[in-house]
């Protein structure tokens, strides 16, 4: 395993029991520090499954996934959950905020499952809130129901970096955004990743995003299906 690689995948094979046509096979894949990669592919082709394999939500049938030189298959279930919350930030499709929690608590969710100092994490949340034009009152709102799309975007970005992860996995975060919002979201995400020295792996079906990334992989051609 190359120590420069944040994520390294070797000879991975994955298929679902009840889906004969679906199979992912990755011989060699890696992401290095500060790298930003976009994986493009059609909907339903297995992009999210690929991200789930990287964050250990599902285990490969064969092969290994290394994150920060740690072979995920060697971790116990609870170690894997903790490892994920401490080292991997995730941005969901449509941001996936819990409406019944305050924006601040949405941001702090990953911190609740680690041993990190919650007060320091709160300070970090407010700091990034300020940077991204989300004032403290807004973050302390009793729930997240009435937030605008822009506010949701920014909160989901802060949530993904709150535990100072080394990598962010983003699953089609721009799929429901218009052109302007898409651009501003990506700019914001890149800025934060650069500032915090975080690598980014984004999957999307949106070909327009090609120009935004230096490193673009076509899911179908790169991974044997």
């Amino acid at each position: 395993m190359n120590s420069k690689n944040l994520i390294e995948i070797k000879n991975l094979e994955f298929y679902w029991n009840n889906q004969d046509e679906f199979k992912i096979q990755i011989n060699d894949f890696s992401i290095q520090t500060n790298e930003k990669k976009l994986i493009l592919g059609k909907s339903g082709i297995g992009k999210s499954t690929f991200l789930n394999l990287i964050c250990g939500m599902i285990s490969p049938r064969a092969g290994d996934v290394y994150v920060l030189s740690q072979n995920l298959s060697s971790l116990k279930a609870w170690e894997l959950d903790k490892f994920r919350s401490e080292n991997i930030g995730v941005i969901f499709q449509e941001f996936n905020l819990l409406d019944h929690l305050s924006p601040l608590n949405n941001i702090l969710l990953p911190c609740y499952f680690t041993n990190k100092d919650l007060n320091k994490s709160k300070d970090r949340a407010f700091l990034f809130g300020k940077k991204l034009n989300l004032n403290n009152d807004l973050l302390r709102k009793s729930n997240s129901r009435d937030l605008s799309t822009g506010q949701k975007q920014r909160i989901s970005i802060i949530r993904s970096i709150i535990n100072k992860p080394k990598i962010i996995l983003a699953d089609e975060p721009t799929s429901s955004l218009d052109f302007d919002n898409k651009n501003s979201f990506l700019n914001l995400l890149f800025d934060i990743c650069n500032e915090e020295k975080i690598s980014l792996l984004m999957v999307s079906h949106d070909l327009n995003l090609k120009n935004k990334f230096k490193d673009v992989i076509a899911f179908e051609s790169f991974f044997k299906l």
């Binding site: 964050c55 939500m57 279930a77 609870w78 959950d81 903790k82 994920r84 919350s85 401490e86 995730v90 969901f92 996936n96 819990l98 969710l109 990953p110 609740y112 499952f113 680690t114 949530r159």
Partner: peptide, 16 residues
């Protein structure tokens, strides 16, 4: 589904 998925991804165990 979304809530459970989110909690799992941010580190909650199935036991949680």
């Amino acid at each position: 589904n979304n809530e459970i998925a989110l909690l799992r991804v941010v580190g909650a165990s199935p036991r949680s």
